[in-house]
Design a protein around this nucleic acid. Sequence first.
DNA 1: GGATATAGTATTGAAATTGATACTATTGGA
DNA 2: TCCAATAGTATCAATTTCAATACTATATCC
Lengths: 116, 116
Amino acid sequence: MVTTSEAEALERHPELADLCPMPDIAKLIGGKWKLIILQILIFKGTKRFNELRRMIPGVTQTMLTNQLRALESDGLITRKVYAEVPPKVEYTATQRALDLEEMFHAMHNWWLKADG
Amino acid sequence: MVTTSEAEALERHPELADLCPMPDIAKLIGGKWKLIILQILIFKGTKRFNELRRMIPGVTQTMLTNQLRALESDGLITRKVYAEVPPKVEYTATQRALDLEEMFHAMHNWWLKADG
DNA sequence: GGATATAGTATTGAAATTGATACTATTGGA
DNA sequence: TCCAATAGTATCAATTTCAATACTATATCC
């Protein structure tokens, strides 16, 4: 590997220390589906599994389950299972996720600025 | 495929229309390296290729080239080649990228809020 | 009775992303 | 004279992500 380690990078470029760690952030909210899931749960409130599935174009059951589980284990959403038949499971954004609202607004404004 | 099309999603959930299209945004700034490249060029100014390489831990030459080209073709950075030997190429954030500053700030605040 | 809806899991396979390695050219310095 | 530095490209391999399919259980509706 012909790359730089994080220690080397910081040693040679101490001015980078004030930048927040993008790779860590990307692990939490990166990927094809996490942002759109969060966006819906943050701005449109609690949703059931199949509601989300129908709201997100192109997502498969498998991927939706995977991503929801990942978001749950990162503390961004909660999962509430009702002991009913047919099954009922609700997903809700945690406070940590709600704190992302500002970022989503900034993104939204940025998008509008170019897209009209 | 057992998924929903975008038309169906919007027909059944018209309230989704005010949310900006995350998949489109992800295409521009998603992926493992684009955010960190933009962060550096936006907040630390113009950089040469090898400067970036040394500032970004773990990135390979191949990937850095790929991502820079993609960012360039999306209008987020400019590439200036100097007719010198050894070669000198400088990368600079465009205004479109500089407009992302607000989003980066929001992200930064969000990160600090939890990480201390 | 049979279809439908729910929220999944498990398995397999395909596709996209990412990484490693070797190679290019030329100049300046030891 | 030989080596390092620059900014790449080309090729192939590995990894990660993503998708398709089939399967589960039970209650309600027609």
